[in-house]
Amino acid sequence: MELALAAAVLGALGYAAGSILQAVGVRGGSGAAALTRSPLYLTGLGVDGLAWLLSLVALRRLPTFAVQSLLAGSLALTVVLARVFLGSRLRRRDTAAVLALVAALGVVGGAGTEQPSPTVGPGGQVALCVAAGLLLLAVLVLRRSGSATFAVLAGLGYSVAALGARALTLPGAWSQAWRVAGEPLAWALAVAGVAGTLAYAAALEKGPVGPATALLWSVEVVVPAVAGFGLLGDVVRPGWWAPTAVALVVVVGCSVVLAGSPAVPEET
């Protein structure tokens, strides 16, 4: 459990660091072509990718609600790092939200016991595959929709990707890794991840980063938690149901507050 918990925490730190690096990288640049020549911006994208891989490691051993909540803590880290490295303004409610979020994540971390990846039946696999396909189709069809719609679609896409990663059966030996390509859940994970990435990019293009990020993380915390309990059999430590429910609400609320902070870097 210690390894999975460390991976989730490092993943949150990676997302926060990636946001700061990208924010610094876009300063003084103009247009996508300039960004492709910015070492800091490209490093930030690479750190984001590493953070995503760390989240997959965490999902192998921890319940979905715990991992997604810990990853949402990246917003608190982003705000703190932006204050230190970018000199961003920190509101009083931001400070309160950071402290409340840290406390809530402590509860979530304590409630999530180590749980091996579940075995999902054919019905569950079909449901995740269909959901991934429909989400990608929605992103491609709903081109004229607003930022909020795309932010929700992004949250749903990343949620399905997280559920697929949690339920994916991996071969016991590296020599058999090629077998993953034949797993339906691997394709669901990939398609849902693409849908989430495209949708979030569209959300940022059509509206401000704060509301889009708030919606994204709200969906990413709530949907995987509910689906994890119902579809994957995730469990909470005995006697921790009520504190966990309250903590999840606090995580979502603090994410909404922090997403609107002036310390959250604008993305391009």
Results as ranks from 00 to 15, higher is better:
residue 1 M to K: 03
residue 106 G to V: 08
residue 242 A to I: 14
residue 117 S to V: 00
residue 258 L to S: 12
residue 134 L to P: 06
residue 152 V to P: 00
residue 57 V to T: 05
residue 180 V to I: 14
residue 154 A to R: 01
residue 22 Q to G: 07
residue 253 G to C: 12
residue 193 G to P: 05
residue 176 Q to C: 00
residue 136 L to Q: 07
residue 24 V to G: 03
residue 54 L to H: 02
residue 59 L to D: 06
residue 82 A to N: 06
residue 172 G to D: 09
residue 83 R to H: 04
residue 76 A to N: 05
residue 260 G to H: 13
residue 51 A to L: 02
residue 96 A to R: 10
residue 174 W to I: 07
residue 53 L to I: 09
residue 95 T to K: 05
residue 64 T to E: 08
residue 129 C to T: 11
residue 4 A to G: 08
residue 19 S to A: 14
residue 56 L to V: 12
residue 131 A to P: 01
residue 76 A to H: 02
residue 78 T to Q: 03
residue 258 L to R: 06
residue 53 L to M: 09
residue 21 L to N: 04
residue 55 S to D: 07
residue 1 M to A: 07
residue 231 L to I: 10
residue 113 T to N: 02
residue 32 A to C: 03
residue 43 T to G: 13
residue 218 S to I: 12
residue 101 L to E: 05
residue 174 W to P: 03
residue 130 V to H: 07
residue 200 Y to Q: 13
residue 19 S to H: 04
residue 157 G to T: 01
residue 86 L to D: 03
residue 90 L to I: 10
residue 58 A to M: 08
residue 66 A to Q: 15
residue 265 P to N: 13
residue 12 A to D: 05
residue 224 P to A: 15
residue 234 D to G: 10
residue 107 V to T: 13
residue 92 R to Q: 10
residue 256 V to I: 15
residue 200 Y to W: 10
residue 154 A to L: 02
residue 190 A to N: 04
residue 224 P to M: 15
residue 215 L to M: 14
residue 134 L to W: 02
residue 68 Q to M: 15
residue 242 A to Y: 09
residue 265 P to E: 10
residue 57 V to K: 02
residue 31 G to L: 09
residue 212 A to M: 13
residue 171 P to T: 07
residue 203 A to H: 09
residue 219 V to N: 12
residue 2 E to A: 09
residue 14 G to V: 02
residue 172 G to E: 11
residue 204 L to S: 06
residue 34 A to S: 15
residue 84 V to I: 15
residue 185 L to V: 09
residue 48 D to W: 15
residue 61 R to E: 08
residue 175 S to W: 04
residue 143 R to P: 02
residue 237 R to T: 14
residue 141 V to C: 00
residue 27 R to H: 05
residue 45 L to D: 03
residue 252 V to S: 10
residue 168 L to A: 05
residue 87 G to I: 09
residue 43 T to W: 04
